[in-house]
Structures are given as structure tokens and as C-alpha cells.
Design a protein around this nucleic acid. Sequence first.
RNA 1: GGCCCCAUAGUUCAAGGGAUAGAACAGAAGUUUCCUAAACUUCAGAUUCAGGUUCGAGUCCUGGUGGGGCUACCA
Length: 598
Amino acid sequence: MIRLEEHIKIATAEAIVELYESEVDPNNIQVQATRKDLTGDFTLVVFPLLKISKKNPVLTGEEIGKKLTEKIQEIDSFEVVKGFLNLNLKAAFWVNYLNSILTSEKYGQKCADENAPLVMVEYSSPNTNKPLHLGHIRNNLLGFSVSQLLKATGKNVKMVNLVNDRGIHICKSMLAWQKWGEGATPESTGKKGDRLVGDYYVLFEKALQQQIGELIEQGTDKETAVKNAPLLVEAQNMLRKWEAGDDIVIDLWKNMNAWVYKGFDKTYADLGIWFDKIYYESETYKLGKNLVVKGLEDGVLYQKDDGSVWADLRDDGLDEKLLLRSDGTSVYMTQDLGTAHQRYSDSAFENHVYVVGNEQIYHFKVLSIVLKKLGYEWADLLFHLSYGMVELPEGKMKSREGKVVDADDLIREMVESAAEVSNELGKLDNFSDDEKNTIFKQIALGALKYFILKVDPVKTMLFDPKESIDFNGNTGPFIQYTYVRIQSVLRKAREQGIEIPIQLDSSTDVSEKEISLIRKLYEYPDLLNEAGNQYSPALIANYLYDLVKEFNQFYQHHQIIKEDNATKRAFRLALSNFVAKNINDGMSILGIEMPERM
RNA sequence: GGCCCCAUAGUUCAAGGGAUAGAACAGAAGUUUCCUAAACUUCAGAUUCAGGUUCGAGUCCUGGUGGGGCUACCA
């Protein structure tokens, strides 16, 4: 169905030719939804046309309004307010619009076939040395949601994860376990695997700091102490052994990683997210090394006297960037070069989105430039979707100071408070414990996900653990609740044998509130598109909130199944049903499940 | 020092260069013989500052202030 704004733009361009004998590109004509507090459906902004009409805004608006009313049958009347031409449509237009979308399977969405462009989305990218925290939650939710959003706009999406399973930091927790672990396992301690390994990392850092302190006390200067502390040297040795494939080190590494993955899998499952493929740094860093060596041979990179390999980015306004250490081991950048190359070989993508925090903007800038230098044109297809940090009231989360909000703890606490609120309301008293627990989880995660996703990704956001996430107001549960109410009405209608129509009578008498609800629905296809272009689930979240608010007002003031007039009743049922469907579609892009009752 | 990002009610968030800057929470006051009151209705309250571009600026440009990030042989 063609959008009416397009009609209006084209008709306006025609009107301008007829009235003022001047050609205007319809795309330059501004048509927007009329402000909510004024009467009208669409508004034509006439200011930009004054240069052409050489008349005052009111007169210009009147003249164009008259022409448009003649040209477009859907227009009922118009009104010029200041420089704005407000167009009032016939109610039948909106009823017909609803009618035309009523049976659409995926309203506003584009379905991807095999020929649709492939977008790779990397998100999560955890380190195996610490459990997931609130920052990762933002990453995971954003990455998953953006993936769903891109799917809804007609892309084939491959969700990938990159596990940081190698490097000096991993050796630190391994070493600590070896020294002080006394054979502890997740089974023997009852701790989640990622938590257990994380604890050894913390232990290592503490011991290392202490050691450094002692060295300084004994008269070593600070720089040397930090560089040469025995524990650190030991960890570095271990990393070299790891890269050399030492059996004992590799065995230990495999063992501990397996614990961590099991723990991560649980957290991912709780969050309701997954990946199509998982890449491991341990498998790609060598590819990166090869690329670097080749770049060195080709003279694109250079080697310093100590053997370290660098890229010179000074011509690009950046600095020199280390790609291989003097001892030949790789850094983060090295493996990311390899990973990117691997992925493009796996499947040539149209676009590769990295969902990674904004503290790595520099890293991804360098990544693209270095790949380009190495001769890979597809470096231009990489896009860093950088998002802001999640801060606590006292500032940034700091793992080392224990100032983190653990992901598992947070999810558990959310479920607990959802249960508390729900039990207080007592609406689920007749349900089994299993059913209740499912619903508590849906509500808890709905609240958490919506809370995080409604915020514009680029912005730093604040999370106050003391003021736990709300279930009232602009929240996930508010949206879920509206959905549940609609389901309840529909259920009752079915029980009474009232059918939900798929065809509407265009002469149905509809109220202003009903029209504004359809108007809201009308916005969705464009909004979805825009959200996809901007990689912003926040736009979807805000749309859903507006829609639901609109519906609740309608619900408050209109009866649905109790309406006596059968035509009106049918219309309201169809409208409610469609709103519920739209809520469900939108929320599933946010990765939020809908309960049927709550 | 250099580069990048952010700044809107007491608080947390909205607002594709367009009209009187929207919500929510917190605060004050209402609405259940009626399809789920996790709702609805009132009230009160904000664009960091100074310039500029424009018919029109929260939005674009320049500068200042404030906050954050990056600038590692960490990731």
C-alpha cells in the first residue's frame, strides 16, 4: 500500500506547478504527522514554499490546501495555522488502512530470502577470566536486538560471538588456580564455572599488587617493579608456553575454559540470547599473525630492532600501532585482523557490525585502516556500533574494586522482585508454580531488557541498584500488561462466540481515540526502517510505549466486547487484536517475551 | 597536551531543522457496582553558557564550561 504522504507530496508539487508555475521536487516537500494537540492528520509545512508562491503563509496554505482537497479524495478538509497546512482525512481512510494491514503476516517487516544481503553482527565478546556483568548485559541485549531488527528489515543476519580465550589475562587465572586452587572445580565448590575462574583472576591480581608493593618497599623503582614482579613474569612465561603448545598448559587451559563456557551458556540462556557461530581468539590469532608477517614481507608494515612489528598510521592522523610483541606473541589487534579475515572468507558480508563499547573506538578505527593497508577492500564494510558505558551512581564499574553488578545476580534479583510484586497483586494465585515462575521470568527480563534498550545506544546510562528497576510507568511490564489485557479481552470474546473479523466495514463510525491509535500503527513501517538504519532498538521501544499508552487510553474510555453495536464491536476487536500483534512483533525485536496473563 | 563522545524537570529517559520541548519515577489530588487499577485522569516542574547560520535551532556551526572515554609490548 502506498503511503499517503507520498501522494500528498506529489500532489503538492503538481499544485505548485498549477498555482505558481514552478517545479519542485516532491522529495523536498515536508509532510509530517500533525501535532497531537491540534486537529488534523498530516501537516504540510508551507514556509519553504513561500519563496515560490511569493505570498504570505496563510494565503499559500489556503491555495495549496484547496488544490490538495480537489486532488486527493481521502482529504476531508484543511486548516491553515500559522505556516502549517493541516489536512484532515476522512475517517474511512483510517478504517481502510487498518483493513488493509489486518491480515498481514509481518506488518511493516521485510522478509529476507537467500539472496538478501548478509550482515554479520558480533556481540558479547566476553573474556574467559571474569563472569558477565551489567556492561555485558547491555552489550548482549543490544547485539541481539539489533540482529532481530536487521532481520525485520530484510537482512540475513549471522550473529557471532568472539571469545577472548587467550592472552596474558587468561594465564593469570590459570596460574592462580595452579598455585592456590588445590584442585578446586565447579563441582567440588558448587560455584558456577565462570565465577570460579573469575575468583582466581581476582586472587592473582591481589597477589600481584602485593608483590609489587613489597618490591617497591625493598627499594625497587616502581616501573621496574610493575614490569618484573615474579608473578607477572611467571604469567608471561606461561603465555609463551601456551603459544608453543605446551601440553600441561594447554590441558589446564582447556579444562578451565570448559568451566567458563558452561557458566556463560547458562547466563546466555537466562537472557534468552544465542549465536549462530562462535569464534575463538585462540583459533584466529595465528591467522592474524600470518597476515602481519605477510604485511611485513610486502613492506606495508615494519619491524623494530627488538623484533616487534608495527603499522605506521601517522599519515592517517594516528600513531604507530604494535601488531606483534618483541617476543613474537600477539596482541588484541593481531587476532582481530585474523578474525575479520576469517569471517569474510567464511561468508562475504555486505556489512559487519561490531557491537563493542565506545572505549574501543580507536581500536576499530585502527582495525579498518590496517586491513585496508594490507590490501583488503572489504575493510570499508566494517562498522563499529559503539555504545555507552553503564555507570553506577558512584561512577564507572570497576572489576578490580569489586564495584560491579554481576549479571547472574541481577537477573536473579529481578525475578525475585517480579515474583514479589506479582504475588502482592495476587492475579496468578490459581496458577501452578511452574506457570508462575515462567511468568515471573518473562516479566523480570521484560523489565530489565526494556530498561536497557529504551536508552539511545550512544549514551552513557545510569543504573542504580538501590532503586531497582520499576514495573510501572515507562517499562517493559507496562507494555506486557497491555498485551495481556488485550489477550484477556480476546479470550473472553472467543468464549462468548464473538468472532474477531479480518474484514472491516469502511463506514464504521470511529472515535478520535480510535483514529489516533490507527495513526500510531501507520507510523510503524517507517519507524522500523529508520530504527534499522540507525541500529537503534531504542526507537522501537519508544514507539511501543507510545502505542501502548494510546491503547490504554482507548481501553479506558471504550468498551470492546460489551459494546452493543456489532459493527463497532467488531472494529474494536480487530483493532485490539492488531495492536496486540504489533506489540508482540516489536517486543520480539527487543528480545522480550509476552506472557498471556500476568 | 592531542583526538572522540555526552550535556534537556529533583531523578531516569524522549523529541527525523518546524507549531505551545514529551514521558516516567519521586511529590500533590482524583477514578473500580463496568472487558485485568502493573491502568486511567488532573496539578506542579527542564533545553549548560555566549555567539553564529536559518523564515524557523534542544537539534546545524564556532567558542567557553562541566562530565566521560581513548591516546599500552592490556583487552
